[in-house]
Structure formats: structure tokens, C-alpha cells
Design a protein around this nucleic acid. Structure first.
Lengths: 136, 136
DNA sequence: TAAGTATTTCAAATATTTTTGAAATAATGA
DNA sequence: TCATTATTTCAAAAATATTTGAAATACTTA
């Protein structure tokens, strides 16, 4: 083992051979300036186990220009689909697809009013939009 | 025109014909309970013109489980690629792809240390991660 | 300089998301 | 009931994003 590097044991097995590149069986040498304590490894492992799927669904719902525009419009006022079609200059079926994603993410809801569907932001939707605007 | 509905003029032209469904040439009737003032239309139009592309790039960068995990790991400590490979159990080239996206979004940066690349969160990266965690 | 290692890049294969247009559904009013 | 209209659904097409593995690059050290 060289003086200015050190092997770290993150995974299970360590071989003595030096032939292979950094891998599960042969963890790489890391520069001595970046010693990683077992404690750090434990912390990271704990975080890696956290479930991020809800977060991802929400962020994905937000990360589209059409969907952001829908949310921004609905913050100004509730609108039925046919008005959103005009305001966003977007075909019905396309808009419908994006409305569905936003609804599934819990960012918007709708209620029937005659033969119209009026969409509005949920509380989550308002919160998310607000913090998105704050950040960017 | 029927009593309990009203035509709105969002786009340019309005025909008198009633034959077509709601479209640019023939805006739909909206329920009378949802009158839309010209003022509201103006507000929405102004918002529709806002550029959301930077926001979208950032949100897209964040909306992936691998990338969120990379950020979460880097919040605990800076790491070189070979260690991230272990911690995230992710192939080099795959990881490299995601690191590139995060770098392009301005969420992480790296510095050379010997033949190692040590990645770390940028200030933006820390902020974003923090607010993502606050929200979800 | 040569050999070894860490990381990226590239192109092809896959997977996922979005768009499109037609058809289905559901509510309304005549 | 029938015709109309608002909206969704569906499947195919198109566009994007991700994964994969091999090769290239670049740094280090012997």
C-alpha cells in the first residue's frame, strides 16, 4: 500500500491484489486528504436508504414549462379547461395530460360546474409554487 | 347567445357561428359563475411570458432519485467519484452522467486532488437541497 | 517514459415522457 | 330523445432521458 493513499472499506470484501480498478470487491484508494470515517460512511448509508420517490414525483410534476405555466395561471384565478386551452395556447388532449400529472402529484384539483371542469391549486400547489419562485 | 353563459375573447378573432367547439377562432362559452375580467386575462398573459427555462433545468436536475442521493451524500461530506460509486452502488459511467447534469445545473462542483476528482455541493446546491427537504 | 488508475466520453440500446389526433364519455339543453 | 359541447382517454408516433460497456483522456508514480 502506498504511503499517500489509503484503502477504504465501504462494501464487503477487500482483496489484497492491486490489479483491479476500484469496484465492490476492490475499493479504490482515496487521497489521504479525504479520509472518510466509518461514522461518515454510516451517515451516508442511512441517507441512501431514505425513500425519495414522493419527492421525485413532485419535482417531476413541477419540472415542465407547460405545467409550471398551468400552476402560475391557476394562482391568479381558477380556470376551466377550455379557458386554459386559450391562455396556454395548448391543445385539449395535451393540456389534459399535464393536468392529470399535476392532479396526481396533488398540486391541483378540479370541481364540476355544469359541463365545465374548473381547476384550482391545492394548498400544496400554492406552497410549492411559492417556494419555487422564492428559490429561482 | 344563451343567458347563463358568456363568450370570452382571449384570442384575436371571434366568429358568430356556433358550429365549432372552443378554439382560437371560436372561444368557448364559460359558465357565468366564472367570469374572467380582462384584467385577469392580462395578468395571466404577463405570467405566461415569463421565462421558466432556468427553473425547469434546476427542477429537472433535482427530480431523479440517483441525483437526489448524490446531493444528499455530498451534504454529509465531499467525496471523490470512486467513493460515490461505492456509496451509491452505481457504475462509473452512469454516475458520471448524473454528476454532469448536476454540475450543469450549478448544484455541484469538483476540484482535482491528485488523480481524484472531489465533488462538493455549491451554495445553490445546499440551498436547493435544504428547501427540498423542508417541503417534502 | 511506461504502466496503472480515476474519470469521462461516446454511441448504441433501452426506457420514459410527451405529443398527436381520433374516439369515447359525460353533461346539457332543446 | 338527440344534438351539442367540454373534457378525457387511448394508442401510436415522436421526442427525450437514461443506461450500458467499451474506448479515450488525463493524471500519477515508478
Amino acid at each position: 500500500m502506498k504511503e499517500n493513499s489509503e484503502r477504504i472499506m465501504i462494501s464487503v470484501k477487500v482483496k489484497n491484489s492491486r490489479s483491479a480498478a476500484c469496484s465492490k470487491e476492490m475499493p479504490c484508494k482515496i487521497p489521504s486528504s479525504y479520509k472518510i470515517s466509518p461514522d461518515t460512511v454510516e451517515k451516508v448509508k442511512a441517507v441512501m436508504n431514505e425513500d425519495v420517490s414522493d419527492t421525485v414525483v413532485l419535482l417531476k410534476a413541477l419540472s415542465d414549462p407547460i405545467r409550471l405555466r398551468i400552476l402560475k395561471a391557476l394562482r391568479i384565478s381558477d380556470f376551466c379547461v377550455c379557458v386554459l386551452v386559450e391562455l396556454l395556447d395548448c391543445e385539449y388532449s395535451k393540456l389534459s395530460y399535464h393536468l392529470k400529472l399535476l392532479k396526481e402529484a396533488g398540486l391541483i384539483e378540479c370541481k364540476k360546474e355544469g359541463c365545465f371542469l374548473i381547476y384550482h391549486l391545492t394548498e400544496l400547489g400554492e406552497e410549492m409554487l411559492e417556494s419555487v419562485e422564492k428559490l429561482f
